[in-house]
Design a protein around this nucleic acid. Sequence first.
DNA 1: TACTAAAAGCGAACGATGGTCGCTTTTAAG
DNA 2: CTTAAAAGCGACCATCGTTCGCTTTTAGTA
Lengths: 197, 197
Amino acid sequence: MPKGIPLTEEEVAKRRHEIFHQVARVFLKKGFQETSMRELAGSAGVGKSTLYDYFRTKDDILIYFFEDQLNDLTEAAQKVALHNSPADFRLRQVMKVHLEFLQANKSLFMKLTTEAQRLKLESQKQIQKKRHAYQDLLRGLIEEGIREGKFRNVDPLLAARMLINTMAPVVFTTRPTGTAQEMLEETLDIFLKGLQA
Amino acid sequence: MPKGIPLTEEEVAKRRHEIFHQVARVFLKKGFQETSMRELAGSAGVGKSTLYDYFRTKDDILIYFFEDQLNDLTEAAQKVALHNSPADFRLRQVMKVHLEFLQANKSLFMKLTTEAQRLKLESQKQIQKKRHAYQDLLRGLIEEGIREGKFRNVDPLLAARMLINTMAPVVFTTRPTGTAQEMLEETLDIFLKGLQA
DNA sequence: TACTAAAAGCGAACGATGGTCGCTTTTAAG
DNA sequence: CTTAAAAGCGACCATCGTTCGCTTTTAGTA
């Protein structure tokens, strides 16, 4: 990277992604909190301060990519949610997309989700808004299902939060009862049957 | 506490409880990870090393009491689970006991549950066994419900984990949709209807 | 009564951490 | 050739969790 010439925003974003994927290799193995900035820098082949040139704090390294992925999930889910089919079918499709995200790239999003819950409380506040956006998307689908007579009259936000909070721990567990796909399908079955009108 | 005379195990346990409830006052406000050993010691009116005389590590302070409460919950739930009534009714009663635990002492167990998820990964392994014990209790109830024809044939461990993992985040939320009682009741409704034969 | 070992309590010190400061090198503009 | 600006980064800082070893108190023993 030549000095003396300021980087464009694209170059900064590209550099962040490069650094992230390099540091991810080490922290996904031993845990984000268990990995020091010195170790992260070493695995990216840069100096410790370089991390601070691209990220405000240590927590921001994880937040930046967690939010990136959560945005992608919300957008992908939004596309599915806009299909012209019954709400319960679309909800099921959205949750399949969610599972795909959880499992992609050696469960990167899954692991980021788990690590995000272990960040400092201040850091978690930053993520909250984007989590709400995804919750609201599911809430909309559940509301449609209620209007269509497919779902009974439950609190849609509660149901949305119930579903989301169930996802990661049910799939990412030390006591699996089947494949991730099977566990998700069964969880969805129980949930959707619980909503059935 | 007189020196020169070794403390009995009861005295040690009593002392631990005293210290814990003193340190809890400060870390429940600002987060366990956000509170230093120096601050914990100060709030208990003891020296920093005194904490190490009673607890092996910082994490052990929280683990000791989290496990204590989880044992109490499992025992209380066990008593309810042994009643002579339909399994679906008993499951509902057990979850009421669970909510009582989550809400007691200004949500002490709830907050410990949340903080426990932010401990070091090694520390979390320590808690796992006791978590499994509670999961197995609910699994047993669900299995009975299936045998009684009250529940349909789902994987009982998956369903148990689904329910437990739903509890804390649904009730302890920044986006409540009612009182804790109401949110729990509705969550249980959705879940039990989902299991219905 | 004096001595001694053992126990509780604890502050100084240690090695490690996240984060900052300011230096070095490279680059383009004038 | 000079200069300002930018990227990169290691030494340094304050604070952390944990350990070491000291002080005080106590009871048992000679």
